[in-house]
Amino acid sequence: MSTDTTETRPADASPDRPGAINAVPVRHPGRWVAIAVIVILAGMLVHLLVTNKAFDWRFVFQAMNQQPVIHGFLKGTLLVTVLSMIVGVGGGVLLAVMRLSDNPILAGVSWVFTWFFRSIPRYILLFTMGTLGILFPQGIAFGIPFDWKIMDWLGMSGDWRFFTLDANQVFTGIVAGVIGLGLSEAAYMAEIARAGIMSVDKGQAEAAEALGMSSGKVMRRVVLPQAMRVIVPPTGNETIAMLKDTSLLLAVPVIAELFYQLQSIGSTYYKTFPIAVAATLYYLAATSVLMVGQYFLERHFGRGFGTKAPRAARPAGAGGA
């Protein structure tokens, strides 16, 4: 392409030294076309946002500012996301370690768990969680298993139960939602954590074992911190997906949740489209915050990889031969 070349003066203009290079900047006509197209499209979008009456921005912001909506966002969306991800990540790492252990029973249990919870759509799982109370009409008791049989056999009366939870209280609302979403997430996180653990070179565990570390210490001190580098990016994905899946809480049912609250305002005032816009803005904002958090987590667990080190720990001139 002629536009991509630089021209030099003919060499015979000065036989001792070549002349100064008559450089012409590389031209990018395609970029200017792209900029023009995008400016026009962006202009159309702004025009639509500002002038189209259907947006009803005043109503959008009023709806976003309602107490039940804010409450639903904080409790049903943010809190459930955080709690479910804690259950999910903790459970997932545990399941991954079990799956990779030499113990065939643990590995099998982990496989069955993952199989079961990955098979059920989250909406149906949450619906089921809300109804599980029916399994335990006398509540969920903590104590010696089959205590009534043992008592009967020993000819004693009474029971060996320490405390009893009302199942209909457990499998309801936020708690049922967190259990359902957390267990489902654990099944997905198990595969992510397993990939992370397997990505760590075998020599790392060998070196740690050779230093006398127990297998638990090897995992906690050496393997998992390095696996996190691989685990964090997809976990960020999972967290963002979880944030959005909290809108499924309605299946439990949980009504202290962002989209349900917005919808009930919308149906009261017969304005559905502005409600969709309000929900979009909420989820955009929350996802943006999560992405910032992911950036810092990735930086933390990336220590020592590549040649980038935290500035404070990098001595002048380090970099090695």
């Binding site: 070179d201 020599g203 070196a207 050779a210 006398g212 020592g304």
Partner: peptide, 22 residues
Amino acid sequence: LDAARQQIGMVFQQFNLFPHLS
């Protein structure tokens, strides 16, 4: 075994330093 290994230092062909630690 872990106690026995404490008395035996090992140096590997591929170094196997822990890359996430200083």
